[in-house]
């Protein structure tokens, strides 16, 4: 059972190395989708926001990570 739990945890860790980063990126994607779907924003503008948002999230994630 312990081994199964470890395998399960490994499988999750393969996709979710950093849960906070994954969640923030999902929020950026959801925000871009909501802008297109509900706010009638030009898809290209929302795409630009998606790109900039991902870049900002990436840099912020590095800035927040502990230094060695």
């Amino acid at each position: 059972m312990t081994m199964l739990k470890e395998i399960g945890a490994e499988l999750v860790a393969m996709f979710l190395g950093d849960a906070r980063l994954s969640l923030t990126v999902l929020c950026v994607v959801a925000g871009a989708a909501a802008l297109i779907r509900f706010a009638d924003v030009d898809p290209l503008a929302a795409g630009g926001l998606l790109l900039v948002g991902c870049l900002v999230v990436l840099i912020e994630s590095v800035r927040r990570s502990p230094r060695l």
Binding site: P43, L44, A46, G47, L51
Partner: peptide
């Protein structure tokens, strides 16, 4: 690739 495909999925026509 992730941003490109996600944008395409949302209907963005990338220049």
């Amino acid at each position: 690739f992730g941003v490109f495909w996600t944008g395409e999925g949302l209907g963005v026509a990338w220049p």
